[in-house]
Simulated scan of single mutants.
Amino acid sequence: MAAYIRALPKAELHLHIEGSLEPGMLLALAEKHGIELPYDSEAALQEAYSFTQLQDFLDIYFKGAGVLLDADDFYQLTRAYLERVHADGVVHCEIFFDPQTHTDRGVPFATVMDGISRALKDGERDLGISSRLILSFLRHLSEADAEKTLDEALPYRGEIAAVGLDSSEHGQPPEKFSRVFARARSEGFLTVAHAGEEGPPEYIRQALDDLKVVRIDHGVRCEEDLDLCRRLASEKIPLTVCPLSNTKLAVFDRMESHNLKRLMDMGLVITINSDDPAYFGGYVGANYRAVAEALSLDYDDIRALARNSITASFLPEDQKKAWLECIDAVARPD
């Protein structure tokens, strides 16, 4: 099964580039910039990656991002991610970045864009991985802050495909950002949003109705509302599910309890992604392998998930068709 998973062309649609900051690079960049960290080795840093809830993760995530200061840092970060997922058979990725995490520290928006955009262009040239960039607003900040970030993004409309919404869901409903999302849509951006991971199914409804999103990031708590599940299936709204993240953050107590297969069986468009792989224990290939083993997925299930990743992407229809044909041409092992 592992070889089959690797051989299938696939897209990753839920990846926070700051969450791919591996301990070795984090320590190297801290040394480069003379930043003192409370960790003296990769092992000590890995030990700190023990989370019991999303906020525990976010605390160390934002601290780690503090070593990203110049355009070359963002280039190295993005290039390293692309090289890792190229080995997993990823042919297209749609990457989240959190500009507020950086501009609040005094790092210019242009610096972030310069490094990430150059790496994505080089990744397509050198590795054959196409990409789209998604700007995520931090939901624990105000809508006014998001408006300022959107202002900074407007000159980069040719490089940013969509806007999204991430960070902790607790007490931060999607409807809080209705106006800035409406403005983003009017400026030509697609919209997605994190909802229904730690937040209730109602947050998924708000993301659909108030933010007019075309994809739901996570969304696994939709299972608590069967009418919502039927709507998601009927409207073919993709969910970008992140299995290792879900178990690491105790959304599910173990992978065998994950509802991914149940949601697939209900007709929902489910995709597999890695979220913040440096922190959650694996890139997209590891996520495929983990659910395949724990949920006893067969070759048809895995192929369906790979196909979903392409159909749910922002690629043009002709490119989707070509990749779907490539997926169907991958031979199953005897």
Rank of each mutant, 00 (worst) to 15 (best):
G285W: 08
L249V: 01
Q76N: 05
T191D: 11
L21V: 07
S117W: 08
T52L: 13
V67H: 07
L138C: 14
T101E: 07
R185D: 09
E224Y: 10
L58T: 14
E94V: 12
L324D: 11
F181V: 04
C326W: 09
A11Y: 10
L77M: 01
S142D: 03
S117N: 12
V214P: 02
L260M: 11
E18H: 11
R332I: 09
K32P: 05
L26S: 13
E47V: 11
V107I: 11
C222N: 13
D72Q: 15
K32D: 07
A161H: 11
Q53Y: 13
S309V: 01
I272S: 09
Q206M: 07
I95V: 11
G158W: 04
R157C: 03
G196H: 07
P243M: 13
D227C: 01
H218R: 14
M25R: 15
D56I: 00
K148V: 01
L26W: 10
L77I: 00
H140T: 15
L21I: 00
R79G: 04
V90K: 02
A146Y: 02
A161L: 10
D122G: 12
Q172R: 02
C326S: 15
S309T: 15
F314N: 01
G66F: 08
Q55V: 13
V90Q: 09
S117P: 01
G34V: 03
K176Y: 09
P9D: 04
D276C: 07
F51M: 14
F280H: 04
E198K: 12
F51V: 14
Q206A: 09
E256D: 10
D275N: 06
K32C: 05
L54D: 04
A2L: 10
D98C: 11
G19I: 00
Y203F: 10
V284A: 02
E169H: 10
R332P: 07
L154Q: 04
I116G: 00
F96K: 02
V180Q: 02
A146R: 02
T311E: 11
G281L: 10
R332Q: 14
R79L: 02
L249Y: 05
N273T: 02
L305C: 04
D59T: 14
Y156A: 01
L228F: 03
L26T: 13
G158Q: 05
F189H: 08
G34C: 01
L190V: 06
V91P: 05
G282N: 11
L211G: 12
I116W: 00
K248V: 15
F96Y: 05
E223H: 13
I116V: 08
L305P: 11
H102E: 03
P333Q: 03
Y4P: 04
Y81W: 12
D209I: 06
D166V: 03
E143L: 07
M25P: 12
M25W: 04
A292D: 09
E22W: 08
R215A: 10
A182V: 08
C229D: 07
I35D: 13
M25G: 13
G106D: 08
I302P: 10
I327E: 08
F280V: 06
G19P: 04
Y203V: 04
A30T: 01
A290P: 09
K236P: 11
D98K: 03
P99I: 01
V269T: 15
E293P: 00
L58F: 14
E197I: 12
E31W: 03
P333L: 07
